[in-house]
């Protein structure tokens, strides 16, 4: 654990390279979208970060269950890592979405199901960290954290469903067109290349950061153990 594994170093380098390629594809290779112009280019990173954000939250809920079954604190560290990395990516998603919405829908924020659910999900996992911070006992912290990620993981999709059902009955109208109509566009094949490459890129980056964060958690645990040992 002390020395950085070679695979991780390779993954670091690969992450940087694919990120650079992905940025190139998104910023220069993909054609400019006709209606929204340049700002549509944030779409690639927007969806990429959203994808890994969701992946991480799902993963956190699963590791939460694994922790509750095995009671092995290792899984708690994996869970925290997943939530933290996802929180960062989801933050990027929301900010990019907001930046995209400004010129496209003429507003920074719409109470559209996806945006609202994203914000609520972000709040759930911020609350998760607040919960963890106010518990000292590591075992209890892990248990409560696992229960809460489980609750959050189930509640978030229901929230999305509920909002979507009601917004379809009462569509949000911005300007003259509905949000859905104005946000949509057809992807050309070049756009698809940039799009799928962005998904791939963020998956790689996610795995990389996730790994680093787990190692950080392990280190934290080790320091904690030693501190207890020395103070005794």
């Amino acid at each position: 654990m002390q020395s950085k594994p070679l695979a991780l170093t390779i993954l670091d380098v690969v992450s940087i390279i694919v990120l650079a390629i992905s940025a190139y594809l998104a910023l220069f290779f993909a054609p400019t979208e006709a209606v929204m112009g340049q700002v549509q280019r944030v779409f690639y990173f927007h969806v990429g970060t959203a994808w890994v954000g969701l992946l991480g939250f799902l993963f956190a809920a699963i590791t939460g269950i694994v922790y509750l079954v095995t009671k092995d604190l290792k899984w708690d560290r994996v869970e925290v890592a997943a939530v933290e990395v996802s929180l960062v990516f989801f933050f990027i998603t929301i900010v990019l979405g907001s930046i995209w919405a400004r010129p496209a829908w003429n507003t920074w924020w719409t109470w559209d199901p996806r945006l609202t659910t994203a914000a609520i999900t972000e709040l759930i996992y911020i609350a998760y960290f607040m919960l963890r911070q106010s518990i000292e006992d590591p075992e209890r912290r892990a248990r409560f954290g696992a229960v809460y990620t489980l609750l959050g993981g189930i509640s978030a999709p229901i929230t999305f469903m509920v909002i979507r059902l009601f917004r379809t009955i009462h569509p949000v109208v911005i300007g003259n067109q509905s949000a859905a109509a104005q946000g949509g566009f057809d992807m050309t094949s070049d756009m698809k290349v940039a799009f799928f490459f962005a998904l791939f890129t963020f998956t790689v980056i996610f795995v990389d950061l996730f790994w680093h964060r787990i190692r950080l958690g392990d280190l934290q645990d080790k320091v904690e153990q030693l501190r207890l040992k020395v103070s005794m």
Binding site: I120, A127, M130, G152, S155, I158, T159, M161
Partner: peptide, 10 residues
């Protein structure tokens, strides 16, 4: 409330 409200929104 911080833990409860986001879960209870549905």
């Amino acid at each position: 409330p911080i833990l409860l409200f986001p879960i209870i929104i549905p």
